[in-house]
């Protein structure tokens, strides 16, 4: 599903490390990555290899210690808190392994949360959120709270929340990690469908080789660097 053109985002020689002094832990050591609109990439790697660290940088939750990150051609290092937040709100949708739904809010309120920060009115938020819940097959659960939903349903609510703002990039950190194989496959199918129907770019972190095998792009993270596996047919950019 890769569409050629300028990359949607681009990482160049990105470094990230934790700790200081003698116990410094270099997690990312020169990551290069180019992702184009419509890409669907799986990121794989052993536990502790820095997958989440990478995703937090892509999602503008964290800043790299060194290197450049260009999102839609914008140098993200120069953005202030308000601009970063606006970009997160408009360009990025997160899906987490542990769903991260707010227990006090109903399904549609959870889904509508990104729109609250876009300053939309309650009625409009409700309309769009329920629409998204229908898309993920939970139209009849809009008024339910997270604790009334199954794990698979919760993750679908979380996906609806990630998509409600029509972001360009969907970032999923082990979205199927807390689910059984069948439910996990349903979630993956939902992501594939969104990628196909809406052209949403998706980056999915997974430990599951079965899941990764279905993704057009597969990226392995090892020793703080990325390695593209089976480069996609049209040869989309990938660092070593």
């Amino acid at each position: 599903m890769t569409v050629s053109g300028p990359p949607l985002f681009e990482l160049e020689d990105v470094h990230q490390s934790y700790g200081s002094g003698p116990v410094v832990l270099n997690v990312l050591e020169g990551v290069d990555l180019q992702v184009c609109r419509g890409d669907f990439a799986a990121i794989m790697g052993p536990s502790g290899s820095g997958k989440s660290t990478l995703m937090n940088i892509i999602g503008l939750l964290d800043r790299p210690a060194r290197g450049r990150y260009l999102l839609k051609g914008v140098e993200t290092a120069s953005l202030d808190d308000g601009e970063t937040a606006a970009l997160r709100n408009e360009a990025i949708g997160f899906v987490f392994q542990s769903f991260h739904l707010l227990p006090r809010l109903t399904a549609w309120q959870n889904v509508g949360l990104p729109l609250v920060y876009r300053g939309l009115g309650r009625a409009e938020i409700r309309r769009r959120a329920t629409g998204l819940l229908e898309t993920v097959g939970l139209g009849d659960r809009a008024a339910h709270r997270p604790h009334e939903l199954s794990g698979g349903q919760r993750q679908r609510v979380a996906i609806a929340r990630a998509l409600v703002g029509e972001p360009e990039i969907l970032l999923a950190d082990e979205p199927t990690g807390a689910l059984d194989t069948d439910t996990g496959q349903e979630i993956m199918n939902l992501l594939f469908r969104m990628n196909e129907e809406q052209g949403t770019t998706a980056i999915v972190i997974t430990h599951d080789h079965g899941v990764a095998a279905q993704c057009p792009r597969r990226i392995q993270i090892r020793n703080g660097r990325l390695q593209e596996r089976d480069p996609p047919p049209n040869g989309g950019g990938a660092g070593l």
Partner: peptide, 16 residues
Amino acid sequence: KGEIGLRRAVGARRAD
């Protein structure tokens, strides 16, 4: 904390 992180992730500014 989780809620705060999530809100930041979906677009809340520090000021929000």
